[in-house]
Design a protein around this nucleic acid. Structure first.
Lengths: 384, 384
DNA sequence: TCTTCCCATGAGAGCGTTCTCACGCCACGA
DNA sequence: TCGTGGCGTGAGAACGCTCTCATGGGAAGA
């Protein structure tokens, strides 16, 4: 009666079942008519046991006779039965779905984070439900209503600007939330972050080692915490080497390619000397490189450039960009793992889990070649 | 008894309800004890009507007294009630979730497609459940089981290589599927595609208009349909202008930056003349540009370069890349809209919906400057 | 005034699971 | 011989909705 195509749980009849609901013959389909889709009851009947027993086999709970279990398992395989996610969700009160809220999907490093999160979530048999903040207020409403509808068990979030308070409320009200923190916000709930400050430091150290004493800094958006952390780390490291950053050489950018160009242009217009650039992301670093070259100066010799993020683009600038790698994929993974761990019983850590940045040296940086002013190529801080 | 924090549907008690299940006092919670989460029954009780009536108000079905409806609506607002997605799903037999299966999330244009799909899906009040093929066989198993569990109502898919047959099976068995076709596969089910052939043609026409008579072609992966379509369109257009492509100038690439460099290198090594390059994607176009420049030739004057895709990187190559724009976001939107339409009653179209590519002219192409051989700068096909 | 019909509403089955209890059976010890 | 206890199993409530079918009351028609 029931054959071949069952394992997928979709049959043509099933598909139309609720849309073009046929008049039902009665409360129960006539004895012996084919089931619309295999349920636990079908398995139970065929195996000659109760639904309870089948459920026990499925979930490995309770003690049951080995032979019974084996028989049930066989029937399950035969029929290709898979429990309905909807029904399990309702009965258990959980969906085995985690939500993920992101500001936009088109940011250059977003794919990495997403991939990291998806990998972990999937490998635990969970699903990843995606939400974006692309349509502003309306997006937020949609999202809020999905939260209320309890469509998912936990939330991974890269904060859309200005929604932190709302997310904090969700957390306070019991929704497990893990923030993937790209802006150094340090929220009142579990999060995964990276070492922005140490990243700035490593950029500075690298440039100092190359003998670069007058760096131009093209920052990120001023209101983001990460901008300050990156700048502070950079500035302090230079200060430790006895070099105070020239305030005129700190240019506020906005993470765009264009702002990198503008930063360089500005310095050039003001006739400010600089032998290096630290840009707060790769896009603006790329813009900076182009502007420098168009001004007839060489990268990396005249001006060495360091970026931040290490997006794929960084490999393809001319010359390939030395940059501070942010472990975006790992952050996605870590956040997802935290949430999975929580579902498994491990409490969520209060403190942010911080993953280290690493400096990736490519060809946009090089030692300063015996400049006319300073007789020694080796920078001061390396004398020991 | 019920206050403040309810609208979100999450309370601390609710959260632990099933995990650390407390011994229940009995089959029903004691009379008057606070509900764990507001249900339709709570609303019904408070409004002095039956669950049925509340349901009718929610879904706008059936005829009901205006005042009753108003009263119910008010109670719903007061309590901040939102129907449980799980329960609705079970009762209706649908989840209001669409699945989306993609090979990888880190491809440069994937974010665009995803964003397009998410936007449409969200605006219809659906959710998007994301699956990737990143972990090969295992991914596919996970995915298959979610399909069987009927976790979603329909599927948007960018085909992970080699899974077309499987997807076709799903479709045949009644799962609504729309393919976002990035490789010109022309499957046996609804899909959204783009004009690869016309894209190749427009690239050729543009180069011909610029007087470029010896183009080097760096193709995509040979086994992809899109590679052939792009090449055929390009070749045929040149043929129409009376120029047969030199077979030695057709280099098989693999869509990587590196393969673009290799293509140019190869032609250079073979001492083959060329005054233009048509690369089958932007990444390889970028690599090609760099190789050309490193060989001491100028882009666009000595060699004009046209790419394909129009990913963000194309704006930032040096010089900015002229390329054939693929409407990835629109494709995502169109596919999602098809599926939404189907849920609304419109049947899925049999034929692929084809969205046009457009040529985006930037600075990597320029008219050929009075070359020594040909006295006329204007290409032949423009004489009319 | 008595039907007839429709409109607004309610009771409750059903969706496909999980989980709580209860029960029957058998071995074992007294 | 009769408890006693544990193991394997089953009945059926609960999860929170939707939807079918039944019903009561009033307006309209005879």
């Amino acid at each position: 009666m029931i054959d071949g195509c069952r394992p997928l749980g979709f049959t043509l009849r099933n598909r139309f079942r609720n849309r073009f609901r046929p008049t039902r013959p009665g409360p129960h389909p006539p004895e012996g008519s084919s089931a619309l889709s295999i349920t636990i009851a079908d398995v139970a009947a065929r195996a000659g046991v109760s639904k309870t027993t089948v459920s026990r086999v499925l979930n490995g709970k309770g003690e049951l006779d080995l032979r019974t279990a084996e028989r049930v398992r066989q029937v399950i395989a035969e029929l290709g039965y898979v429990p309905s996610a909807r029904a399990v969700g309702l009965a258990r009160g959980r969906t085995r779905i985690v939500g993920m809220l992101v500001p936009s999907l088109t940011w250059p490093w977003m794919g990495e984070v997403l991939q990291g999160a998806v990998d972990v979530v999937e490998s635990e048999g969970y699903g990843l439900l995606l939400f974006t903040f692309n349509r502003g207020e309306e997006s937020m409403h949609q999202f809020a209503s999905q939260v209320s509808a309890q469509s998912f068990d936990g939330l991974l979030v890269i904060e859309p600007e200005g929604t932190l308070t709302y997310i904090e409320q969700l957390h306070a009200r019991g929704l497990p939330v893990v923030l993937i923190d790209d802006r150094a916000k340090r929220p009142q709930f579990p999060s995964v972050a990276t070492t922005n400050r140490a990243g700035g430091e490593s950029a500075a150290r690298h440039l100092l080692e190359l003998g670069r004493q007058r760096p131009l800094v093209i920052t990120g958006v001023e209101r983001f915490g990460c901008t300050h952390e990156r700048l502070d780390g950079f500035r302090d490291t230079y200060a430790e080497a006895g070099i105070e950053l020239d305030q005129r050489l700190v240019f506020e950018g906005d993470f765009t390619h264009e702002s990198g160009r503008r930063g360089v242009q500005h310095a050039l217009d003001q006739k400010l000397e600089f032998d290096a650039i630290f840009a707060h992301n790769d896009l603006s670093a790329g813009g900076a490189i182009q502007a420098v070259r168009e001004a007839g100066r060489n990268v990396p010799d005249d001006v060495s450039v360091v970026g931040f993020d290490d997006i794929p683009y960084a490999e393809h600038t001319e010359p390939p960009l030395t940059t501070v790698h942010q472990p975006m994929r790992q952050m996605g993974q870590a956040a997802a793992r935290m949430l999975m761990g929580y579902f498994g019983g491990t409490p969520l850590p209060e403190d942010p889990q911080v993953l280290p940045t690493t400096l990736v040296v490519r060809s946009s940086t090089a030692p300063k070649k015996s400049p006319s002013r300073s007789p020694k190529p080796a920078p001061r801080h390396r004398r020991s």
